[in-house]
């Protein structure tokens, strides 16, 4: 999965789940401060990323450090490189 594919899928989650405009989804945007998410949204973000990419994230320590959209893209890109057999579109 390429970085562009990851960005598209992650942004779809933010548009669908959090009703954000695609134009708002710039990589440097902070999830809380810029995009208006809160701690409950983060749980739902993990659920939706799980559904989208097929990877269980609730217990993943690394994902807890994401702060911006770019952090999410980076995390998933790394994860895809390290676990190419695990990550996939429409995981569920």
């Amino acid at each position: 999965m390429t970085r562009d594919e990851i960005i598209t899928l992650v942004n779809n989650v933010f548009v669908e789940q959090f009703e954000l405009e695609p134009s708002e989804l710039l990589p440097e945007k902070h999830l809380f401060e810029d995009l208006g998410l809160d701690s409950l949204d983060i749980v739902d973000m993990l659920v939706e990323l799980h559904k989208t990419f097929g990877i269980a994230l609730r217990q993943n320590e690394e994902v807890r450090s994401v702060r911006t959209l770019n952090d999410i893209y980076d995390f998933l890109e790394r994860y895809a490189a390290e676990h190419p057999d695990q990550i996939r579109e429409s995981g569920l």
């Binding site: 749980v43 739902d44 993990l46 659920v47 269980a56 994230l57």
Partner: peptide, 10 residues
């Protein structure tokens, strides 16, 4: 069917 990983916060 799935478990906690798919349970929305709400």
């Amino acid at each position: 069917s799935i478990g906690l990983d798919a349970l929305p916060a709400q």
